[in-house]
């Protein structure tokens, strides 16, 4: 074992290593309460006053003429790098919207749809779906 330790240390130096990384954007989206919104009754103004407006960022939801969308972006990455001078890199990543809230408004400014989905990267689950059909 003692004889093998220097080899293990050397191997650890030459194997550049592996990286496990996680990127999350807008983690606070999980805490937004949408259970009080009633389609056909709740107005855009009430939504703004109670939960605010979603941040608008490219590809991450935001405000459009008839909808508000909040998203929690989650990306997990695993990287294996072998060697120092020539470094073959193997990377596997999975990005998804872990939480996605969509509030749609009709022409009169009332909520017409509330949908909320949760994803673990493989399966998407609808946790809330409220719609007002005229």
């Amino acid at each position: 074992m003692v004889r093998r330790l220097p080899i293990i240390i050397l191997a650890a130096f030459f194997l550049d290593g592996c990286k496990i990384a996680r990127d999350q954007v807008n983690i606070h989206v999980r805490d937004i309460d949408t259970s009080w919104i009633e389609p056909g009754v709740t107005t855009r103004r009430q939504v703004i006053d109670r939960i605010g407006m979603p941040p608008t960022a490219k590809g991450l939801g935001g405000v459009t003429a008839d909808a508000f969308r909040w998203t929690l972006y989650d990306k997990r990455t695993g990287t294996l790098e072998a060697g120092y001078i020539v470094t073959p890199t193997f990377e596997l990543s999975r990005a998804h919207f872990a939480e996605d809230i969509l509030v749609r408004f009709d022409e009169s400014g009332k909520v017409s749809l509330v949908s909320r989905t949760v994803s673990d990267g493989k399966n998407v689950r609808i946790t809330e779906w409220k719609e007002c059909r005229k």
Binding site: A12, G17, C18, A21
Partner: peptide, 12 residues
């Protein structure tokens, strides 16, 4: 040395 753990948290 052999493993790096990284986390990035963003608020927009």
């Amino acid at each position: 040395i052999a493993v790096n753990f990284m986390r990035s948290t963003t608020v927009t």
